[in-house]
Structures are given as C-alpha cells and as structure tokens.
C-alpha cells in the first residue's frame, strides 16, 4: 500500500493519463501530491503571457485543473506543489526527499532525436530516484 504518492505533472495529456492510472491503485487514506516544476525559462514566458487580472499561481493551478478535477470526482485526497528548477533534477530531488512512497509520471512522447536533444525526464527519474517509479505511456 502506498500512503504518499508523488505525481509529476506538467499539464500535458500524458500527465493526465498518469493521474488516471493512480486511481487504479489508490487506497483510501492515502495522499497524492501533484508536483508541477516551473523551469527558469518558464518564468519568463509565464510572466510575459500572464494576464493582469489573475496571479501566476491561479494560472498555474488552472494548467493542472483537469487533474485536480479528476481527483475530486474520484474522491482522491491531493495537494499541489509548485517548485522552481530544472524538471529532471527537481522531480528527482523531491522524489528522494523521503516523504513519498512512489513517484508516478507520464512520458512526454518524444521521438528519439528529440530525446537526444531534450533529454528524457522519465528516463532520468527512473535512473536516479530511490523510490519505486511508475512511468505511464
């Protein structure tokens, strides 16, 4: 039984699929932490594209709202966490913080060339995390 589940989510279709997968092994009483990593260059585009009326926090919450909505419908207890940093390193660091029993993430679905240039987050997390890793395709 996993009591504390870490879900790395970037707001994409793939991270939503990873969230759906959690319901299959979720037990009552457990808690899911939705981790959204904000890269340093994301700060630039988020500030530039941010609306004047809403705070950046609100906008970022909206980005993962399909996941929070889904968790609410499914009766899954969750909290959200936003961290600044490089996605790969930050997911690994949070996963290894000792607070979590398992880390769940989706793949970005890159082809092999993109993967060579951009580097695969899921690959790095699988290699470096000290807890079980679930990669959802």
């Amino acid at each position: 039984m996993y009591n504390s589940i870490l879900l790395a989510a970037d707001g994409s279709e793939n991270s939503f699929r990873a969230a759906q997968e959690i319901r299959k092994f979720y037990n009552k009483g457990a808690k899911v932490t939705i981790l959204n990593v904000i890269g340093y260059s994301d700060s630039k585009s988020d500030v530039l594209h941010g609306s004047n009326s809403k705070s950046l926090e609100r906008e970022r919450l909206e980005k993962i709202s399909d996941i929070t909505d889904f968790f609410e419908e499914s009766g899954i207890t969750y909290e959200t966490a936003f961290e600044h940093g490089e996605p790969k390193e930050t997911v690994v660091r949070v996963a290894n913080s000792g607070e979590y029993d398992v880390v769940v993430l989706g793949t970005r679905g890159l082809n092999s060339l993109q993967e060579m240039v951009l580097g695969s987050v899921s690959h790095k997390v699988a290699k470096r995390a000290n807890i079980p890793v679930m990669i959802v395709k």
């Binding site: 904000i38 340093y40 700060s43 630039k44 988020d46 500030v47 530039l48 950046l56 600044h84």
Partner: peptide
C-alpha cells in the same frame, strides 16, 4: 522591471 518580475517569480 520586466526582468525583476521574472526574477521575483523564479525565486518565489
């Protein structure tokens, strides 16, 4: 001031 806003965000 644009840069300051970006650094504000990146450093929380």
């Amino acid at each position: 001031l644009l840069t300051a806003k970006i650094v504000d965000d990146a450093t929380d």
